[in-house]
Nucleic acid binder design. Structure first.
Lengths: 130, 130
DNA sequence: ATGGTTTTGACAATCATTATCAATAACAGC
DNA sequence: GCTGTTATTGATAATGATTGTCAAAACCAT
């Protein structure tokens, strides 16, 4: 049976609060900074669970860390991420969905999954940059 | 000054031979299996160099390993990868290219880069799997 | 061949993540 | 509310990929 613990809730809330993508270690630090004595292993487990249940999205940062983010949209979607400030926009991508499936099919591939993420500079950071 | 060593050449050749994406550790094993006494650290360095020079493509597997592959097409392209045997098909993706640029623009993002890779089971592995 | 530098490679160090397992806490039923 | 069962926690060890270290070896212009 699944039980509700304050730790689970704390992770969920911390994720919501963070806004952008954050690493498991980062979340753990944030929670500790906020006075929570939650354990690192627990944070990893909670994030993994949330990701499995579709309540959180995960992706791999370019340097190999796993990053997590609270999912506002349920269901499959992709992200547009500001590489400077971390601002993230969730984007539906039926177009890409269809493309991925078609390309996979054309080459005889089955069980196609895909990784599609767009990194850039958001409007604010673009303006600041110059 | 950059020097040419047989190790560098061995890594380049092993990459060409492997055909698909392969991990640094995997390449090292393959080289050892072929009788080469090359060191693991050297393989990592060589791969990193090749990737920097654009002679190899690198991507992160879903479980966080860095995978490398000899680049046949110069210029921008994406990959369709068998998660079982590593077979890789290079695919141009004008469609996705246009989509990424458009979506980024719609949200005010500039300097859009994107990560687009499709993982699946190739025809052969699909057949074997059952 | 010689010398100055780069490169190598065995091994230690690091870093994120996962496994271990005894102690703890949730929940259902009384 | 109390109790027993059992999922969950968390400190720590283990793992596994990758990077740092540094003396020895290899490269190349001279």
């Amino acid at each position: 049976m699944k039980r509700n613990t304050w730790q689970r809730e704390a992770v969920r809330e911390a994720l919501d609060t963070s806004g952008g993508f954050i690493s498991a270690q980062g979340l753990h630090s944030a929670l500790h900074a906020g006075g929570s004595p939650i354990g690192l292993a627990t944070v990893y487990r909670a994030l993994s669970d949330l990701a499995d249940q579709g309540e959180a999205d995960s992706l791999q940062s370019p340097d190999g860390e796993s990053l997590y983010r609270a999912c506002t949209t349920t269901g499959h979607h992709h992200h547009l991420i500001c590489r400077n400030c971390g601002l993230t926009v969730e984007i539906g991508a039926d177009e890409v969905e269809a493309w991925a499936k078609r390309v996979a099919g054309e080459h005889g591939f089955t069980e196609a999954a895909h990784v599609v993420d767009v990194f850039g500079l958001c409007a604010t950071c673009s303006a600041t940059a110059r």
